[in-house]
Each structure stands twice: as C-alpha cells, then as structure tokens.
Design a protein around this nucleic acid. Sequence first.
DNA 1: AGAATTAAAGACCTTTTTGTATTTTATTAA
DNA 2: TTAATAAAATACAAAAAGGTCTTTAATTCT
Lengths: 144, 144
Amino acid sequence: MWSKTTEYAIRALIYIALSNKESRRPGFREVAEGIDTPVQFTAKILQTLVRSGLLSSIRGKGGGFFFGRNAEDLKLSDVITAFEGKDYFIGCALGLKECDSNNPCPLHDEFVEIRTSLEVMANRETVQGLALKIEGGSAMLKRG
Amino acid sequence: MWSKTTEYAIRALIYIALSNKESRRPGFREVAEGIDTPVQFTAKILQTLVRSGLLSSIRGKGGGFFFGRNAEDLKLSDVITAFEGKDYFIGCALGLKECDSNNPCPLHDEFVEIRTSLEVMANRETVQGLALKIEGGSAMLKRG
DNA sequence: AGAATTAAAGACCTTTTTGTATTTTATTAA
DNA sequence: TTAATAAAATACAAAAAGGTCTTTAATTCT
C-alpha cells in the first residue's frame, strides 16, 4: 500500500509515543530494537521526521526522540504524505496524468471511493491513538 | 497503490481487448503508442502476461497480442497478483510478518476493511468490462 | 527459398528504494 | 575540561524497479 519507509516510520513513532508516556526519550537504537527494523535505516527515517517537524529530538546524554507539546496528536496522513508525497491520496489507479470525474480512467469512480476511505482513516487515526491500542493490549507492534 | 508495471499492464490489456473487438491483434509498438508507455518496457510486460497465460500472442506477419476464447473475462485481481505477488491482498499495513485478528497491528481492523474493498473491486472488474466503459465513452485511457 | 514482419529472449543501463558504516556535532555529567 | 553519550551528517553499497537495445526465433507472403 505504501513503502517500507512509511511502515517503519509509523511503527517507530508509535514506539516513541509509548516511551514518552513513561517519560522516556528512546534513542534510535532502542527504537529499531523495539520495532524490529534496521538500525541505521531507522535512524535515517527518524532524522527525516525531525527535519519535517513531525518529531523532536535532543542530542547528547539523556537525549533521544520525543513529541513536543505542540505535536501531541500526529495524524497518520501527515506521516504518510511526508514520505509518499503530498499527492499520495490523489493519484490515478492506472497512472494517468489527467484523471478526474470529467476525464476518468475506467477505474476512477470505484478507486476514488477506496482511496477516500484510506484517506479518511489516515486523517482520523493518530500516532498517539494507535499507541493507546497497544497500551490497552488490543494490538501489537511485534510478535507476541 | 501498486507498481507502474501493474498500471501499464492493465492499460495495455484494455487496449488489446478493444483492438480485438475490431478483429485486430496489435503489436507491442501499437499498444505502447496507444497507452502512452515506454515501448520496450511495454513489450516486456506483455511477454510476462503471455508467459503467465493471461494473454496470447502470435509471431510473424499479421501477428500480435490477443485474448483467446478461454480467457475472455480476465479479472483485474489476476493481473494485479501476477505482478504484485499472490500475497498482495494479504499484507499488513505496517509490514508486520504476523498480523491477523489474533495478533493485530493497531491498524489491522480498519486496514482489512479497505484492503478487502480493493480486493472485491479487483475480483469484480475485468479487463473486458473496463474496455466496455471506454467503448461506451464513459471513460478514457488517454487524454481526450 | 528469401525477404519482411513480429514476438521472445537476453544483456544492459538508470533510478529509486532499502540498508550499512563512519565521521561530526551537540549535550551532559563528572 | 574531559569523557561519555546521542543525534546529525555523510558517504557507500546492495537490491529492486523502471527502462533501453540488440539478437534470435517464429510466421507469413512473395
């Protein structure tokens, strides 16, 4: 549905949100270990998130990654578009440059409906909301 | 949503289905021209489709690509899984190896619903059905 | 039989994605 | 002020996706 980078990013952010609740700021090594992703690649993804302003970080001893007060409810759609591009929820199913209700590809109507469901979900769900599900035990990030 | 290869494949197949209705068997050059895709890359995709048994071809003068009687209703889901792999409609939104209702990722329930809509659509729609929409003028393959 | 035509096959090449390793910079604590 | 710690930056590299080009094999028509 989307790239591994996006998958890893969402998992990493959920892990960080959970850690923050325990007043901890995990480093990228801990995050990668916690969500079972390649360490340096995870570091790179977290850097991108910080640069995009979706996540905060502090260097040095006691440092790590965290969500500032201002970014307490990070929508999944923001994470997705940060990596997939802002047109992610606009593209045509058959890759046509011009595809809209006036000039539709043969899949247009049906595809728009599905794509919109995805967008609605991504706008509704937040990293912190998903973290709550893990906390409550109704979902998992790792086998177990 | 899926790769360019899959997008090109669907468009190519629709073009071929339309040509076949006019009792013509287009070659890969004509197909590529007709759907605005890279010529040799299109040829490669058509080869894959023939090898997969989803499409037929004849070499030599008067040859080209066509659908045999047996494959008159080619489901989109068959085209998609031919290129994306048979697990395309099974994968986890967050890339977890084990993700099901017993051991769900925090997006599982919502994602399954969307993924299933996509699968239902892909099982319902056929290349020939989509070709009909083009023929009837209610959809396009190219700017127009 | 020979020329023309067309898909098949295979060797490449480029770009993007995914992943690794090393060095640098900022911060803290002793 | 020095040592330890941790993110940032940078450079590489492997793999996959996307794309091109040339040669070969099959078929038809003359």
